[in-house]
C-alpha cells in the first residue's frame, strides 16, 4: 500500500442531464494529511467528493480507496461509507433528527456496533467537537456554527479513516472559521484521520493545509504544497481564484515597491519572518 488514501484514474463524471462535471481527473491524496481542493463555483469540487464515497459512480475511470478500486455493491458501499466520513455544506440537509444526540448516533448505529461501544463513540465525538452541552437541545434551536459541529460529530463518531468536508467554513463567522479549522487540524493530528476540504477561503489554506489541488471546469489544473501552488499566480488568477491576501501584499511590495523580499510568504508568520529577514539585511544601511 502506498501513501495515498484516495487515488483517481482518468475520472470522468457526467450528470444525467448531460452536464460534464469531471473531465479526466487523475490525482492521489496523501494519507494523514490535510488536503484542500480549490476551485471557483461550479469547478466540480462537490462532484469529485461525491465520487469519493460512492454516492456518484464514475461515468468512466476509476476511484481507488487504499489502493483498491471502489466496490459499488451494497456491502462494499456500506463498508466504504463507514470509513469515508462526508460532511455536507448545509448542516440542515444533513441533520435529520430534532435531537442532537440521536442524530449523532445515526451513523454509529448503522455500523451495527454493540450499544456500549456506540454510546462511547457518540460521547467521545461530542466531547471532541465541544458540543456535549448541546446534547439535550433541539436541533432547530442551534446556531449555524453549532449545527455544523453536530454534523461533524455525527460523522466523527463513526471513526472514519478520512473526513471529507464540502466547504466547511462557508457561512461561519471569523472566529468560527478559525475554531473549526483548528478542530479539523486537531482531529487530523491526534486521531490520524486524513482531512480533505473544499473551500473558497483561500487565506486559511496556507495556514491549515499541507497539500492543494486546484480545479477548473472539471479539470485539475494545479497541485502541490501551498508554496508551490501560490507561486503560480497567473494560472490562479485566470480561473477566478486569487492569492492569499498576505501573498498578494508581498507580491505588490516586491514588484511595485522594489523590496527584495521572499515573495513566497502566504501567512502572517511567514511574512513576519520575511520582513525580519529584510530588516536584518538592511540594518547596516539604515
Amino acid at each position: 500500500m502506498n501513501g495515498n488514501i484516495f487515488e483517481t484514474r482518468d475520472l470522468h463524471y457526467i450528470y444525467p442531464d448531460g452536464t460534464v462535471a469531471l473531465k479526466g481527473i487523475s490525482i492521489g491524496i496523501k494519507r494523514g494529511k490535510c488536503t484542500a481542493v480549490l476551485g471557483a463555483n461550479g469547478a466540480g469540487k462537490s462532484t469529485l467528493f461525491l465520487n469519493f464515497n460512492g454516492i456518484y459512480k464514475p461515468s468512466s475511470g476509476q476511484v481507488l480507496f487504499n489502493g483498491n478500486p471502489l466496490d459499488y455493491s451494497r456491502k462494499g458501499l456500506k463498508e466504504l461509507r463507514s470509513k469515508v466520513g462526508m460532511v455536507f455544506q448545509d448542516p440542515d440537509s444533513q441533520l435529520f433528527s430534532a435531537s442532537v444526540f440521536q442524530d449523532i448516533s445515526f451513523g454509529v448505529v448503522n455500523m451495527k456496533l454493540p450499544e456500549e461501544e456506540a454510546r462511547r463513540r457518540v460521547q467521545a465525538a461530542m466531547a471532541r467537537t465541544g458540543i456535549t452541552h448541546l446534547k439535550d437541545k433541539p436541533t432547530h434551536s442551534l446556531s449555524f456554527g453549532q449545527k455544523k459541529r453536530v454534523a461533524i460529530a455525527g460523522v466523527l463518531a463513526m471513526e472514519p479513516e478520512v473526513l471529507v468536508l464540502d466547504e466547511p467554513t462557508a457561512g461561519l463567522d471569523p472566529i468560527g472559521v478559525n475554531e473549526l479549522m483548528k478542530l479539523l487540524r486537531q482531529i487530523q493530528d491526534t486521531l490520524g484521520i486524513t482531512v480533505i476540504i473544499s473551500t473558497h477561503d483561500i487565506d486559511i489554506v496556507p495556514l491549515y493545509c499541507d497539500y492543494i489541488f486546484v480545479m477548473n471546469e472539471g479539470k485539475m489544473v494545479l497541485e502541490g504544497t501551498p508554496k508551490q501552488v501560490f507561486a503560480q499566480k497567473k494560472i490562479l488568477r485566470s480561473i477566478r481564484l486569487r492569492l492569499p491576501r498576505i501573498g498578494h501584499l508581498m507580491e505588490i511590495l516586491s514588484e511595485k515597491d522594489d523590496f527584495d523580499l521572499d515573495t513566497s510568504a502566504n501567512t502572517i508568520s511567514e511574512a513576519r519572518a520575511a520582513l525580519k529577514d529584510w530588516k536584518n539585511r538592511h540594518s547596516g544601511c539604515l
Binding site: M86, Q94, F96, S99, F101, N110
Partner: peptide, 24 residues
C-alpha cells in the same frame, strides 16, 4: 431539493432504509 440532499447525506452515513438511533 432539500429532500434530495437529505437522502444523499443519510446515504453517506450508511442509511439502509431505517432511521435507527440510540435511545436516550
Amino acid at each position: 431539493k432539500q429532500s434530495d440532499a437529505l437522502y444523499t447525506a443519510l446515504e453517506a452515513r450508511g442509511y439502509d432504509g431505517e432511521l435507527n438511533v440510540l435511545a436516550e
